[in-house]
Design a protein around this nucleic acid. Structure first.
Lengths: 250, 250
DNA sequence: ACGCATAATCGTGTATACAATAATGTGCAA
DNA sequence: TTGCACATTATTGTATACACGATTATGCGT
């Protein structure tokens, strides 16, 4: 490994702000998947998407390949790509993984975070307290909170893994903040985590965040149970599920 | 000894059963990075690579974007991509991450592996025992061994994270098997790990593999120290390091 | 000789045309 | 009706041309 390369400058992390049509297409598709406009299992064709976004296939292709590399799209059977559709078992796998990674992150953050980062973390807590009782808003703020911890851990590989892991959240179903009482519980747990980090206690931080993730897991199961039950009931009534959504009109 | 001439590997793009030129280009670039033919920090231009592989820019682009998504390439300063060049601190980060992930994998494997997987794992041990005392050969077999564990853990997200993490190994320097006595030590540690998995003891398996990774970390530091010392010595003698390698002629 | 404006150059981003391939339908025979 | 061969078509894969932006070279004025 070359340590002393004077010419090496850190490349600016690919500007997301209008960095070109390909980046924009990536954003649009990513959002559409996150919002559920494009459902898991749905097939996407390059021409269809390029017509939707009014651009040529080239940047669309690039965006789709990137999404594929990140695991949100996969080669579909009859050609083309489809949004990955996970079985229920994936939920356990996801949370097991998340518990491990977040636990590591919290422990490292307790060691490596500087004072500023800790104060930002605390400020995020205040912001969440001030938030209205809206599931979606809390989900967003929650992600900010967790990403703060990832960064405070100061481990680039861990950061990457966690960020790519979180891409799968929207593919697992609706927000867990829809579970009753989840907002209040989560906030209390967040406080515990920040306390442990502020106290520079890695073991306690890891333990707190692991409990947090396990609770989140339980909430997820509740939410998914509802979804599944509803789906079964609807099918029993002859409703074959929502008709395939068209890309133009959300 | 191992001459890494890309032209020798696969004669022509069409001859192989490769899924297309883009996939082939990806393989070639990936290999070149792994083998060190393309050094960390080196800049790559699309046209240069497309000339090297005798294809148009389109599939080359695709391959490079994929490598970028996987973290092996990054946007270079003056346009183009460059192989990521890590500072020495990355080594600690890498092994911290690896210890966490492999620990989780081993624990899960102890729970979830079926009998066949365990027997394959044991067979891999035998294969390693039969191997000649060649660092590169052991490194390869070692990777097979570890991937067996990842798979036995039965967690798709964990598997992905670990696989992408391992992509960075070649960017950290030469094989740790070059450290003295590493081959024998590693084998003994592998045996411990398999024993714990066979005994269905997750805690012991995790502990064993964590120790294994920590030892590997120490070996890595020894090897990198050598590399750095040599680099400094060479520079002191006015040798500005190896001249930039040309893609066609190794 | 120096500084600034401007042109030339290099390399990527995007569009479009064309080729190859995999799915599907169709016709014919058993 | 079933099965297979073949044509058709839908969709992706690749090449090429052009446009745009950034960086570097050039030349003129001072």
């Amino acid at each position: 490994m070359n340590v002393t390369d004077p010419e090496h400058k850190r490349a600016d992390p690919m500007g997301e702000a209008g960095g070109g049509r390909a980046a924009w297409a990536y954003e649009m598709l990513h959002d559409a998947i996150r919002e559920g406009t494009i459902a898991p299992g749905q097939r996407l064709m390059e021409m269809e998407v390029s017509a939707w976004l009014k651009m040529s296939r080239t940047p669309v292709r690039e965006a789709m390949r990137r999404l594929q590399a990140e695991g949100m799209l996969e080669h579909a059977a009859g050609g083309g790509m489809s949004v990955v559709l996970y079985d229920l078992r994936a939920i356990d796998e996801f949370y097991a993984m998340r518990e491990s990674l977040e636990g590591t992150a919290a422990a490292l953050a307790a060691r490596n975070a500087d004072e500023t980062e800790i104060r930002i973390l605390a400020a995020t807590l205040d912001a969440m307290r001030a938030l209205p009782r809206d599931a979606r808003a809390h989900a967003r703020e929650n992600q900010v909170f967790h990403e703060q911890i990832y960064r405070a851990a100061r481990n680039r590989f861990l950061l990457k893994s966690l960020q790519s892991l979180l891409n799968f959240v929207p593919l697992l179903g609706p927000t867990t903040y829809n579970a009753p009482g989840r907002i209040e519980d989560a906030l209390a747990e967040h406080v515990e985590i920040v306390d442990a980090i502020r106290a520079r206690d890695p073991a306690r931080a890891e333990d707190a965040i692991r409990r947090h993730i396990r609770h989140s897991h339980e909430s997820r199961i509740l939410v998914v149970s509802d979804t599944v039950r509803n789906a079964v009931r609807d099918r029993a009534q002859g409703l074959r599920g929502a008709p395939p959504k068209r890309l133009g009109q959300p």
